[in-house]
Amino acid sequence: MHPGALHYRIHNLDEPFNSTSARALDAAAKYGPSSPTSPHALHMPCHTYIRCGMWKEANRANELSINAADIWITHRHLSVSLRDFHSIEYQQYVYLQQGRFQSAMQFVDLNFVVGFDMGVFSAYVKGILIEARQLAETHFWTTDAAFSIPTAFPARITCPTCDDPSFMDGNYLATIWANTAAYFARVNALFGSLVLPDRPVHPSTLFRTTLGPGGSL
């Protein structure tokens, strides 16, 4: 089957029930090897695998895609802002489902550097969203190192590229989602720890890794 057909088959079956079908899993298994240097082809099987909760396979798919994109921008001396942020978003979710909370947090930091320091709006918006996920997922667990994404609410972010029709839909919706997810995660975090009474609700220190200057690879 043509790689493009595999791509659309994965998308077509990408919902909770049909993603678990043999057809979806077959397409997921074949698509990556069919286009081994294409970051997005390597990533696409992850759409199926996270529906199924096949975290090892999802992790592998995203590792390959993120690595392929990094090779591409390194060889062409391109900006770190062109890293594969779609795969990175998915990979952060996979890490959270594997208890790899520190690894997941590194992606929040990366989005912060690229999104804010380098002014890439899509990375910034996605950063707010994955920070919300980090907070929502890690607050369920009792770790000996408290994560401390602030529970203060973000300034209401806006969409500077919404004047450009080609960016309108995606960025506008992403902005809305990032706002709502951030609000939801932070309020839930106020109460989430109550399941485990001895757990700190508001850790006082930020908890981040530091990337190199300018977010270099």
């Binding site: 520190q102 930091d109 912060f112 804010f116 709006f121 910034y124 950063g127 707010i128 920070e131 190192a145 994404i149 602030p150 203060a152 609410f153 973000p154 300034a155 972010i157 806006t158 969409c159 500077p160 590229t161 919404c162 004047d163 309108m168 839909d169 506008y172 919706l173 902005t175 951030a182 220190t205 930020l206 908890f207 981040r208 890794t209 530091t210």
Partner: peptide
């Protein structure tokens, strides 16, 4: 682990991008 906890004095919570544009409610 190496690098944790490493405090950065900033967060998405405290930042604000250019305002105004999104207030134009765009029909999607």
């Amino acid at each position: 682990a190496s690098g944790y906890p490493a405090a950065l004095p900033r967060s998405f919570s405290h930042l604000e991008l250019q305002e105004g544009v999104a207030d134009k409610r765009i029909r999607l």
